[in-house]
Amino acid sequence: MATDFFQDIMNDVVNVITNDGRNFVGTLISYDQKMNIILTDCNERVYESKDVPVEAVKMNLYSIRGDNIATIGKIEMDIEEDIDYNQVKAEPINPTHIF
């Protein structure tokens, strides 16, 4: 069940992709059964194009409504520390198509 997963990643740094194609990284401090979540120390990772490195925009305390969430991943800090984000360049994530 999804609740087991949330209990597992509680108070960990998570990576959230939303349906409008935005990417947030922050510490998960709260969730509910509708998958609404609250992140502290939240940064939005803005992917502009393949020529511009990803940019972090500080969002502080951030709450995301459950039905706008596409994926939630737990960030492995040992891998994260080795990544040079000045080298990471990508096109923006596509929004989720709702037909």
Partner: peptide, 17 residues
């Protein structure tokens, strides 16, 4: 092309996406 989840190993995908 899609380096959005470089440091993620465990991922929840919401059913409706």
């Amino acid at each position: 092309e899609n380096p959005y989840l470089l440091s993620v190993k465990k991922l929840l995908i919401r059913g409706n996406t």
